[in-house]
Protein backbone atom coordinates (compact mmCIF):
# COMPACT_ATOMS: atom_id res chain seq x y z
CA UNK A 1 0.00 0.00 0.00
CA UNK A 2 1.57 3.24 -1.05
CA UNK A 3 0.69 6.58 0.43
CA UNK A 4 -1.28 9.08 -1.62
CA UNK A 5 0.62 12.12 -2.99
CA UNK A 6 -0.97 14.24 -0.30
CA UNK A 7 0.29 12.00 2.48
CA UNK A 8 3.78 11.96 1.04
CA UNK A 9 3.94 15.71 1.20
CA UNK A 10 3.00 15.67 4.84
CA UNK A 11 5.72 13.17 5.68
CA UNK A 12 8.42 15.43 4.28
CA UNK A 13 7.49 18.39 6.49
CA UNK A 14 9.60 19.97 9.23
CA UNK A 15 10.23 18.79 12.75
CA UNK A 16 7.97 20.12 15.51
CA UNK A 17 9.75 22.96 17.33
CA UNK A 18 10.01 22.43 21.07
CA UNK A 19 10.98 24.60 24.00
CA UNK A 20 11.82 23.62 27.58
CA UNK A 21 10.39 25.62 30.44
CA UNK A 22 11.73 25.30 33.98
CA UNK A 23 9.22 25.62 36.79
CA UNK A 24 10.44 26.15 40.33
CA UNK A 25 7.12 26.08 42.07
CA UNK A 26 3.67 24.56 41.46
CA UNK A 27 2.21 28.06 41.61
CA UNK A 28 3.89 28.80 38.28
CA UNK A 29 1.65 26.29 36.56
CA UNK A 30 -0.94 27.82 34.25
CA UNK A 31 -4.36 28.26 35.72
CA UNK A 32 -6.19 26.12 33.22
CA UNK A 33 -5.52 22.71 31.84
CA UNK A 34 -5.44 23.60 28.18
CA UNK A 35 -2.35 25.78 28.59
CA UNK A 36 1.19 24.45 28.75
CA UNK A 37 3.70 26.05 31.15
CA UNK A 38 5.26 29.06 29.47
CA UNK A 39 3.53 28.08 26.27
CA UNK A 40 0.57 29.05 24.24
CA UNK A 41 -2.79 27.62 23.39
CA UNK A 42 -2.60 25.43 20.35
CA UNK A 43 -5.98 26.63 19.20
CA UNK A 44 -4.82 30.25 19.07
CA UNK A 45 -1.42 29.66 17.52
CA UNK A 46 -1.57 27.77 14.24
CA UNK A 47 1.97 26.61 13.71
CA UNK A 48 2.77 27.36 17.33
CA UNK A 49 5.19 30.15 16.53
CA UNK A 50 4.04 32.89 18.85
CA UNK A 51 6.97 34.80 20.34
CA UNK A 52 6.61 34.61 24.10
CA UNK A 53 8.87 36.35 26.65
CA UNK A 54 8.78 35.91 30.39
CA UNK A 55 9.29 38.82 32.72
CA UNK A 56 12.65 37.51 33.89
CA UNK A 57 13.99 37.39 30.34
CA UNK A 58 12.80 40.90 29.57
CA UNK A 59 14.59 42.21 32.65
CA UNK A 60 17.83 40.67 31.40
CA UNK A 61 17.49 42.42 28.02
CA UNK A 62 17.16 45.71 29.85
CA UNK A 63 20.92 45.87 30.29
CA UNK A 64 21.92 45.51 26.65
CA UNK A 65 23.67 48.61 25.22
CA UNK A 66 20.95 49.28 22.67
CA UNK A 67 18.27 49.13 25.31
CA UNK A 68 20.13 51.79 27.29
CA UNK A 69 20.49 54.40 24.56
CA UNK A 70 17.49 56.59 23.80
CA UNK A 71 15.79 56.15 20.42
CA UNK A 72 17.12 58.66 17.85
CA UNK A 73 13.79 60.39 17.22
CA UNK A 74 12.35 60.61 20.70
CA UNK A 75 10.03 63.65 20.72
CA UNK A 76 10.54 66.29 23.39
CA UNK A 77 7.59 66.33 25.75
CA UNK A 78 8.14 68.32 28.94
CA UNK A 79 7.88 66.14 32.03
CA UNK A 80 7.71 62.98 29.93
CA UNK A 81 10.74 62.59 27.68
CA UNK A 82 12.51 65.72 28.86
CA UNK A 83 12.79 66.07 32.56
CA UNK A 84 14.83 68.84 34.17
CA UNK A 85 18.21 69.41 32.58
CA UNK A 86 19.95 67.73 35.49
CA UNK A 87 22.61 65.36 34.22
CA UNK A 88 21.58 61.75 34.22
CA UNK A 89 18.08 62.51 35.39
CA UNK A 90 16.48 61.65 32.09
CA UNK A 91 18.42 58.45 31.65
CA UNK A 92 17.10 57.08 34.88
CA UNK A 93 13.43 57.67 34.51
CA UNK A 94 12.12 54.23 33.78
CA UNK A 95 15.51 52.62 33.94
CA UNK A 96 17.39 50.58 36.47
CA UNK A 97 19.04 53.50 38.21
CA UNK A 98 15.77 54.81 39.53
CA UNK A 99 15.57 52.32 42.33
CA UNK A 100 18.74 53.60 43.89
CA UNK A 101 17.33 57.05 44.17
CA UNK A 102 14.97 57.84 46.95
CA UNK A 103 12.02 57.66 44.61
CA UNK A 104 8.67 59.05 45.59
CA UNK A 105 7.09 55.67 45.24
CA UNK A 106 9.52 53.95 47.53
CA UNK A 107 7.96 55.49 50.57
CA UNK A 108 5.07 53.05 50.71
CA UNK A 109 6.51 49.85 49.39
CA UNK A 110 9.94 48.48 48.74
CA UNK A 111 10.98 48.92 45.15
CA UNK A 112 12.71 45.88 43.76
CA UNK A 113 14.83 45.23 40.71
CA UNK A 114 12.16 42.96 39.37
CA UNK A 115 13.50 39.48 39.91
CA UNK A 116 11.95 39.11 43.32
CA UNK A 117 8.43 37.78 43.67
CA UNK A 118 5.90 40.41 42.82
CA UNK A 119 4.71 42.55 45.66
CA UNK A 120 1.39 42.09 47.32
CA UNK A 121 -1.01 44.89 46.72
CA UNK A 122 -3.45 46.54 48.97
CA UNK A 123 -5.95 48.13 46.63
Amino acid sequence: MSASPVQRQIVSSQAIPTRRVLLNDPSQLPHDYSTTPGGTLFSTTPGGTRIVYERHFLMQCRNSPLAKSPPPNLPKIPGVTTVQEEKGELMKENGMGKEERSGKENANHKETSGDEPQFHMDI
Binding site: A67, S69, P70, V83, K98
Partner: peptide, 9 residues
Protein backbone atom coordinates in the same frame (compact mmCIF):
# COMPACT_ATOMS: atom_id res chain seq x y z
CA UNK B 1 13.57 49.38 26.52
CA UNK B 2 15.21 52.18 24.53
CA UNK B 3 11.81 53.92 24.60
CA UNK B 4 10.55 52.75 27.96
CA UNK B 5 13.74 53.62 29.85
CA UNK B 6 13.72 57.18 28.54
CA UNK B 7 10.24 58.26 29.43
CA UNK B 8 9.05 59.26 32.88
CA UNK B 9 7.55 56.55 35.04
Amino acid sequence: FANYSHIAR
